[in-house]
Amino acid sequence: MISRFPLRRALAGLTLAIAPMMAQPASAQFFWSPPDMSAPPLTDAAAATALGLPGATPAEIKAGLAWNLRAALNVAALQCQFEPTLLSTSNYNAMIAHHDAELDVAQAALLGYFQRTVGKGKAGQSASDMYNTRIYSSYSTVQAQKGFCQTTAEVGRQAIFADRGTLHEVGRVGLGPIKKSLIAAGEQYYGTPGYDYNVALPSFDPKCWKKGVLLPVCHQAWNDKAGVTP
């Protein structure tokens, strides 16, 4: 007689082994254990500093929140296409279509801010143009690209489902994590050997070399530097 209990126990063990994998959140495209990108919502005072809008009125702060969120998601749409499942481009396009009226108001309000604080006419327009260039550059990253792309994907989904006229509130909650994600922070469980790796090079002092061969004393110094033991 063939017993089925060992097979059942094996399947049960396999289920327990797979369960943690199935429990991983859908947003974890890059990390088994992602870095914590949480940050508190921006107050008006914090937003004025973080967005580079000193002395802004509450209406101008709202405009800055919406416009900076647009800039961040626009950069993500361009930089995060290497991972199509993030839907960075389609989320950005949907956000623009859904919140176009609020974004038009935000753009006008920010121009008004610079005309009020810098000067009317060409001076204010020039300051507004430079501000746009500056905020776009501030959301561009290389070393922290994975964390940035994952975070903007999450915030982008919130933006497309937010009611019209409330994009600034999505920005108030989402811009803190987005700005935090611009600091490189990789895999939390396994570490980031690619980022943490340091190359130990031998001395290139001519005294350390003879006919292209590293002399023993300098070779030992190189081993000590690299942590190599004989």
Rank of each mutant, 00 (worst) to 15 (best):
V173R: 15
L201E: 07
I2E: 06
Q220P: 05
D104H: 14
P177A: 10
A26C: 01
A200N: 08
I61Y: 01
H168N: 12
D104F: 12
S128P: 00
L182W: 08
G227K: 14
Y92P: 03
G191W: 04
G194Q: 14
D224A: 14
P202I: 14
A45Q: 13
C149K: 13
A45H: 08
L103W: 07
S38H: 09
I96E: 03
A153I: 09
G212C: 08
A221Y: 01
A46H: 02
P202N: 13
N198L: 15
R9E: 00
M21N: 03
N93R: 13
G171D: 04
H168C: 00
K225F: 04
A76S: 14
K180Q: 11
T152S: 13
R164V: 07
N68G: 02
S27A: 14
W32M: 12
T229V: 15
P177T: 03
G13Y: 04
A10I: 09
I96Y: 04
A28G: 06
N223M: 15
A77G: 10
L16E: 01
Y139D: 03
S128F: 13
A50Q: 13
I61W: 02
T141V: 11
P6A: 11
D163L: 15
L11H: 06
Q79A: 15
V155K: 05
M37P: 00
I96K: 06
I183H: 11
D104E: 14
Q115C: 03
K210V: 10
V199N: 02
Y136H: 07
T192G: 00
A226I: 02
R164M: 12
A71R: 11
V213I: 13
A50R: 12
N132C: 01
S140I: 08
Q29D: 10
F161W: 01
R4D: 01
R8T: 02
G194I: 11
A221N: 10
G191H: 03
S90I: 09
R9A: 13
D129L: 13
S3M: 09
N223A: 14
L73Q: 14
L111D: 03
G194M: 08
A12I: 03
F204P: 00
Y136V: 10
S138R: 07
K62S: 13
P206W: 13
S38I: 00
R8H: 00
G212H: 07
E154K: 05
K225T: 09
L86W: 06
R70F: 06
A97G: 03
A101W: 04
A50E: 07
A71I: 04
V75D: 00
A46I: 00
A153D: 07
L111V: 05
L42H: 05
T57R: 14
Y195Q: 06
S3I: 00
A17V: 08
Y195E: 04
Y113C: 06
G64W: 06
A72S: 12
A226Y: 01
Q145Y: 02
A17N: 01
G212L: 12
K62V: 01
T229H: 12
Q81R: 15
N68F: 02
L87G: 03
V118M: 12
G191F: 04
K207P: 00
G194R: 13
P84N: 07
V199R: 15
Q24C: 05
K210M: 12
I2A: 07
G147I: 01
N91M: 07
